[in-house]
Design a protein around this nucleic acid. Structure first.
Lengths: 336, 336
DNA sequence: TGTAAAAATACAATCGATTTCAGAGGATGC
DNA sequence: GCATCCTCTGAAATCGATTGTATTTTTACA
């Protein structure tokens, strides 16, 4: 428990002014090489580390970005949804490579405090918001206030903030095309189309039907939020009610896994009786049994893009919204 | 993009001194109620938010704690391991309830930079380290340097830092007892007993055998780190090599899920031929097919404990290591 | 009403760094 | 040999808040 040593103290020890120490530590060309070495040596010996608050106060930057993961009320998602968590991992990785810390905020209530706190207090230089469900207005407002925000989500309306996301429509189309190409004719869509991202996936689903000239039945939809548990029961009831379908396209892997379980508990086989395709390609998808055919959103790449665009914004560069290319990942056991 | 408004500016607008503003905002009893209201009103109107760096510099605290998730080299774990991610979620939740931000650090290399950076720069008031695999020495050292550290892990040696974890031995025993009580006689242990947590689970496994007076075969162990992919192949090979066993106790749910897949791909049935019990009870465990019998470490509770103990330490209170009570969660389809 | 005590506010130091500006000393050019 | 320019270092201002102390205003009581 050595006492914190300050820069002034270090300057005294090295017998130079603090300004010289500061310059030396920041490798300024203004300092003679000898002096620099001397200071660095003493700094190392004493285990000196610069005080972040002081530096940030002076520099007016935090070397940190925030990530806000809002649990949309009633979305049924929890922080343990693997999608969120993989996103946190991806963003954390990308941020640390750029020398930025990542501050995670999981607001517990539906107030705007979290975003404000991080961004406006200067605790974070910029903000990544995961998912915009129902919050686009607020985000628009916040963005005009201080514009270092990048949002993960699907395009919806005409946001004035920068958006990063996967090509949801394409994803929905790919998934549906896959099922249709296997000869499935009645594909149940499982997901909450009130969420913009999911709505786009549903559009892709319809598009695929049109292209394949397969009539689609708009009653073949089970509007379920992202909560696996409730989806499981809802689908069980749906099956028990005697609805007929030979495939399911679920709006997330969690939903897909819940669906598989529901189907099996109704004594139907996956994929023989009912094929299932998910969305996200979370890590568990390949490891679950049966392994899951799904749409890869390229979460890692998405995290990179979020961070890169945000840092560009922080640097004042102009930035355009960007989208990852979704891709079909076929794993034979569930989807075919 | 309103320009940042400072406290001095606010003081000017309210026609009082900054010290009064500061006290008003901090609800100090030294300020008259009228004045307080007046200041608060103007603060609200102008959208004033206190600058975190300045406050932290002055207060010598960061109102933030760090969480370090070290990918032990060769542990095979990735940040997307659901266990880590659920832990991050739990800690984040607990921290925000206490008004603390959470800074996530996922060091990419095996240097000690990450811990030092966060803690010694004052960016975080305390540090939570997840897993101690092979790092107990370094942690001991860091702890003597600045003691606000709480580590998640199993007891190993005689650490001078505070430890929080689940009762791994008990967990191992519960899992094994369960399998033995079902009449299984040859239980494969799947996990890397070089990791202290896993070693303790293995001890519990042996203990259960002794108590049940079932001879255990110490060749019935497949030492695999936490990587699901490699475990899958290793187990496949193990099965192909003709080893006989009727159950598996996996040191994590990810391993268990990989195991189930390996078993099935070898055309054996789970649980009829081989029952499987996992460890962690991650969210996916209930949703996977077949759903997983597992040991619940009470991650959420653990996250709470980590945060609470750390904050106690920060407050200078004496703190003792603590452990959650592990519990068996039976889900019929895999484990019985 | 005058004075002592209490309440409210203002002043000023401080947290630990960065950075502008000024100055000391040495090198260079003519 | 002297003026000029470079290099390097130091002094001091600054970032935006908090807080101990001083000062003013208000209240209370005789």
């Amino acid at each position: 428990m050595t006492k914190k040593i300050t820069m002034a103290e270090l300057a005294r020890l090295a017998d130079v002014d603090v300004s010289t120490v500061s310059r030396a530590l920041n490798d300024s060309p203004l300092v003679k090489a000898d002096t620099k070495a001397h200071v660095l040596k003493i700094a190392a010996e004493t285990g000196y580390v610069v005080n972040a608050s002081a530096r940030n106060l002076r520099r007016q930057s935090a070397q940190a970005i925030g990530i806000v993961i809002p649990m949309a009320p009633g979305s049924g998602q929890t922080i343990s949804d693997p999608f969120f968590l993989e996103m946190v991992g991806a963003v954390s990785h990308a941020a640390s490579q750029k020398g930025y810390d990542l501050i995670v905020s999981v607001p517990q209530s539906e107030t705007e405090i979290a975003e404000r706190r991080l961004l406006l207090t200067g605790r974070a230089d910029g903000l990544i918001v995961i998912g915009q469900a129902g919050r686009s207005e607020r985000l628009n407002k916040l963005n005009t206030l201080k514009s270092n925000i990048v949002v993960w989500g699907g395009r919806e309306g005409n946001p004035n903030y920068t958006l990063v996301g996967s090509d949801n429509k394409r994803g929905g189309r790919l998934a549906s095309e896959h099922l249709l190409s296997l000869g499935r004719k009645r594909i149940l869509f499982l997901g909450d189309i009130d969420l913009p991202e999911v709505a786009l996936r549903y559009e892709g689903y319809k598009l695929a039907h049109e292209e394949a000239e397969v009539a689609f039945d708009d009653s073949l939809i089970l509007r379920q939020n992202f909560g696996g548990e409730t989806a499981f029961h809802a689908l069980k009831d749906f099956l028990a009610a005697g609805h007929e379908f030979d495939a399911i396209f679920a709006a997330s892997d969690v939903l897909a896994m819940a669906a598989i379980q529901a189907v099996q508990s109704a004594s139907k086989r996956v994929p023989e009786d009912i094929a299932v395709v998910g969305y996200d390609n979370v890590g568990q998808a390949s490891m679950s049994t049966p392994s899951l055919t799904t749409i890869d959103q390229h979460i890692t790449q998405g995290g990179q893009m979020l961070v890169n665009l945000l840092l560009d914004k922080i640097d004042g560069k102009p930035v355009k919204s960007a989208f990852t290319k979704t891709e079909l990942v076929v794993r034979r056991s569930s989807g075919a």
